[in-house]
Design a protein around this nucleic acid. Structure first.
Lengths: 313, 313
DNA sequence: TTGTACGCGTTATCAC
DNA sequence: GTGATAACGCGTACAA
């Protein structure tokens, strides 16, 4: 393996001058630059990326913690992160999480060990408070509204579009509205915002018997519909946390030749487009792009991004 | 920033001994180990990951070149890579490509600069021959059948299931079979395999007027159907390169109250499940997992993985 | 404009 | 068991 020292020795110059040539810096005479470059070319030399990172104290890597799920939240947010990282000359290191606290802590430790320059949690299980001490090692970004906690954040401002969505439902005179939520509102900010918006519009808590947690996939939607039907519950509207999930709901009713209740999805997926149901576009790609800017220190603070309620009428 | 030398100095031992403690190596007396550990804990010291990588000459990073598209090929293959990398203790660095030759060459250069230990091309534009010289810097893996070229590869063995698929179409007495292909068969191995299988089963070239290139999305499927109808072409079967694409086809016919021709998709997506059309499961997740094993040197050679034709009847 | 010398933080080799 | 020291390969004050 040839090193910068080899180039220096063979070209008859110092490593400092070779380094200047490598990094296209000034204060090298054209003739010396040309000669050193010729040696570099001849020996087919390239600098070692790790040594450079060590010397510079930067890796140009951003760690991204995500669940390995084919869900639009992750695919879109990741697409936004990737595009922004690419544009800024950063690399993205994918860090898998599975709601595993210790694993998430390990990623924070990697930040502390300078394995990356910044860390984005697209999802997390550990309390945000555990992240705060790590900010001194580099930007730590979360992708939901952190409330009063002082941490960089990029997230979809769901509240307003949820209000719009429930207002639409309310105006259409639906009374027995079922909610399909990803997780317990006590744990999931998304679920909590859904419930809050519901209360604000309907002036009452959502019906407990019609609220289902753990809804993530098409199959979950199908199962939820089955649950409602077999238990004699008859919601006149089902608010699903995803177009695919809503599609599962619709499929159950269709399979059993039952009248499908009113239906709404989220995430503007192909499946919802085909059903022609209303949806909410959370613009996760923009969330990802913003998160990356925070992670590389190009921005700071909390960024609530606009989301769109779409009737698809 | 506290370093291993600080720990050595304060504990009154050598950096070598501290290093042994850090890496849980033998030949350290329990008492010394305990004392050094106490100093480590007290100073809240952690080793620097980059320095460790430099010293070891390994990064435990695998570069993965992919298109930033929400297509099951990429999401599934990536999921497989991620899962396998996680299990093996490797990190995945996502490298964006956009059919840009120079960009792909830059990634090969990064491998040469030791930025990662191995490189996986889930897609590539440059000829494989350009990759060969880089194998001396670490494993270079492609995700399609490389033919006679000597390079590590993991890919879906499409041929047999394509034969099955076309045989199924043939048996059902369809005559005017349209093909929706991702790219020109001269450029895309997938497209070429499709054509080859067609020929083998039908004993003739696919109908040129019914073959469409550049088919990638739902919208492309919709546009293809529109093309057929408005040009008075009337395929009795359409073989699409994706369930979503087939769904676009079906939607056009439905929107225009026309009888939908026979239809088949690929990639076992939700949309195709709903349509109830046959599909081919290419098991991209397995492809990804195998590619990673190649990239970390746990395996070598060419691995053609089995794919499944599913009638969904 | 160029070169010297040291720092970056760790691991590995060898002598003791 | 333990320690001194040489890699690892590059960047950069500082001196010249």
């Amino acid at each position: 393996m040839t090193t910068i020292r080899d180039i220096a020795r063979i070209s008859g110059h110092s490593v400092a001058t070779v380094s200047r040539v490598l990094n296209h810096k000034k204060y090298v005479s054209p003739s010396v630059r040309a000669h050193i470059q010729s040696v570099i070319d001849e020996l087919d030399y390239v600098p070692n990326a790790v040594a450079r990172d060590l010397s510079r104290g930067k890796t140009m890597n951003i760690g991204v913690v995500l669940l390995n799920l084919p869900h639009p939240y992750y695919t879109d947010i990741n697409a936004g992160i990737m595009a922004a990282a690419f544009a800024a000359g950063y690399n993205v290191v994918l860090l898998q999480s599975k709601y595993d606290d210790d694993q998430e802590r390990a990623y924070l430790e990697q930040l502390r060990r300078k394995a990356f320059d910044g860390l984005i949690f697209t999802t997390h299980n550990i309390p945000i408070e555990e992240m705060l001490p790590y900010r001194k090692y580099g930007p730590v970004v979360v992708c939901h509204d952190p409330g009063d906690v002082d941490i960089d954040a990029a997230f979809s401002q769901r509240g307003p579009s949820y209000i719009q969505a429930f207002t639409w439902i309310h105006r259409h005179n639906f009374k027995k509205v079922a909610l399909l939520l990803p997780r317990d509102p006590a744990l999931s900010a998304t679920a909590a915002e859904t419930v809050t918006a519901y209360k604000q519009v309907f002036g009452a808590d959502p019906l407990g018997s019609l609220t289902r947690l753990g809804s993530m996939t098409y199959a979950d939607g199908y199962a939820a519909a089955e649950y409602y039907v077999t238990n004699g519950l008859h919601p006149d509207f089902i608010f699903a946390n995803g177009d695919d999930i809503a599609t599962g709901v619709a499929q159950y009713y269709k399979d059993h030749h039952l009248l499908t209740p009113g239906l709404m999805g989220q995430d503007r997926q192909l499946s919802g487009e085909l059903l022609g149901i209303p949806t909410i576009d959370h613009h996760y790609k923009d969330v990802g792009a913003t998160a990356l800017r925070l992670a590389i220190g190009k921005a700071t603070g909390k960024h609530g991004l606009h989301s769109d309620f779409l009737t698809r009428e």
